[in-house]
């Protein structure tokens, strides 16, 4: 009886692990260098939607930004349309959420 219970518990644990891992795998990561072709702040200024034109492929990639530091840079125009950006993002639920959003320029 004890052995049967152990096997069932192990099987359940394995299934839970597989489901959890597959969920993690769904959050795919991307990175790119691109130029901002469109920048829109939400009304409450807590989110921004940015379209980056990929320097490599020329394709437009839409990125959602929610971190305060970057949003502040949009607010006072330290980052504006036309700036080149190095971006890391997570693809989840059909959206690309920014994980790193930095201007390539420096001195």
């Amino acid at each position: 009886m004890k052995k049967t219970v152990s096997i069932i518990v192990m099987a359940v644990l394995m299934m839970v692990s597989i489901v959890a891992l597959s969920r993690t795998a769904q959050a795919d990561e991307g990175k790119m260098v691109g130029t901002i072709s469109k920048l829109e702040m939400s009304a409450d200024k807590k989110t921004a939607t940015v379209v980056l034109k990929d320097s490599k492929s020329g394709e437009d990639v839409t990125i959602i930004i929610t971190d305060d530091l970057t949003l502040d840079k949009f607010n006072d125009k330290r980052i504006v349309e036309g700036d080149e950006i190095r971006c890391k993002f997570e693809k989840e639920g059909g959206k690309n959420s920014s994980k790193m959003f930095k201007k390539t320029a420096g001195c």
């Binding site: 330290r78 201007k103 420096g106």
Partner: peptide, 24 residues
Amino acid sequence: NKTCMTCHEAAGGGVLIKRGFAMT
């Protein structure tokens, strides 16, 4: 902090390249 970091974070050729610290 933003005032200072506007210039100082971009030193060394890009954001947080030279000294690599963030005042957050």
